[in-house]
Design a protein around this nucleic acid. Structure first.
Lengths: 211, 211
DNA sequence: AGATCAAATATCCTATAGGATATTTGGAAC
DNA sequence: GTTCCAAATATCCTATAGGATATTTGATCT
């Protein structure tokens, strides 16, 4: 059997982008850490040019910052003010997305929504949570909403990982409430359940920050 | 008198980024047009590397798209579906921003808000409109809101320029209503006025698209 | 001991050259 | 006249070399 996969090289830059983003999200590269173009080039075995392109894209997405003649560094961990701003933004977008998803979500996505039952490890729960919110944002049928939330969830993921936030039964139950409302195609309930979920989630994460 | 300006070179990449973004917004580079790295390098008199970094950032912001081994091209003009998505998003964010701005905006920004009275040319009105919405988003005190709206307004600007949308007295009056509500620190009125402004603006722009 | 300054280092920034690919152009066949 | 195919071109992608700058280290002075 020949290889039937379509080869879409897509360029080294995007490959590097995915790799470095994964390293940042897994804290293999911690927040507020210098990222050397030269080191990355040697480690990944590619030239400096695709590294520079990848870092430029990461900078545009707010994961690293550049200072002239001083190189790149990962963004520092969110402080209290940034966490507040992020959840204020999520409260504007995600409840509306849940309402629209309840009204218009495709059946295939609705099934995928409730497929993940078990959440054994911390990483598995984080991935499941990311996928859960991604599916709902996608179900809202608005690419701007989906893209914005994807960007924000990366930062939430990093923040949670910094504090080894344990898996809470509460979050699972809150997810279940949202899933039930979407399956019932009840927009009002889905919006309210999502709002409640985000507010509770905000409360749980806020406890990790004192200042 | 010596030069008291702090020299912040900030890199050629950012300089190129601003320049190309300006060219795209002014339609000097029309939508759906190929952008050659080599041509830009020759035209701007710099090497290819900063051009590549600038284009990577523009791609992350959705102003150009890249295809492997086929180069960059400006994004095509928004179609009806994209316009709908964009204004759905604005309706989620900007009314809330107007409410918060009415409650918390700094006095200096409030004065700047009502400074621009005249709107002689099409370009001048476009700039004034951009600055108006930028000030309100900034007044909301949330960087995520401000950054998101700045990105979206670029696309609105391009869309409007494509159709040589004339200056409407309506838009000016709607702006005045928002300004009055903010000066009165009336959050409810500011939010409602902003919502009305965006809905009317959407109606005016939608007429340019048939499909 | 602490602070200040200069040299050394590591890193970034820019420019140029060569290999690989998509696009375009021209011609031949139907 | 239209369609198909092959060669030529323009462009991108990658790699490497040299100049410029920020950071660090170490010694000297108070």
């Amino acid at each position: 059997m020949a290889d039937r996969t379509i080869t879409r090289p897509s360029g080294l830059a995007e490959e590097v982008y995915r790799r470095v983003r994964a390293d940042i999200m897994s804290l293999k590269i911690p927040p507020d850490t210098r990222v050397s173009v030269d080191s990355l080039a040697r480690e990944l075995g590619v030239s400096q040019t695709p590294i520079r392109e990848a870092l430029s894209m990461l900078e545009a997405n707010g994961l690293v910052s550049k200072r002239h003649f001083a190189g790149y560094a990962t963004s520092p961990r969110m402080d209290r003010a940034q966490l507040d701003e992020l959840f204020e933004f999520r409260l504007l977008i995600e409840p509306h997305a849940a309402r629209k998803a309840a009204q218009a979500m495709a059946d295939a996505d609705k099934r995928a929504l409730s497929s993940g039952e078990t959440a054994p490890s911390h990483d598995a729960f984080a991935d499941m949570d990311t996928e859960f919110h991604r599916l709902i944002a996608q179900g809202a049928g608005n690419h701007l909403i989906a893209d914005s939330l994807a960007r924000l969830h990366i930062h939430v993921h990093i923040f949670r990982s910094c504090f080894r936030s344990e898996i809470t039964e509460e979050a699972v139950h809150e997810h279940d409430a949202i899933i039930a409302a979407i399956h019932a195609r009840d927009g009002d309930k889905a919006e309210a359940a999502m709002r409640r979920h985000i507010e509770r989630s905000y409360g749980r994460l806020r406890d990790f920050i004192k200042d």
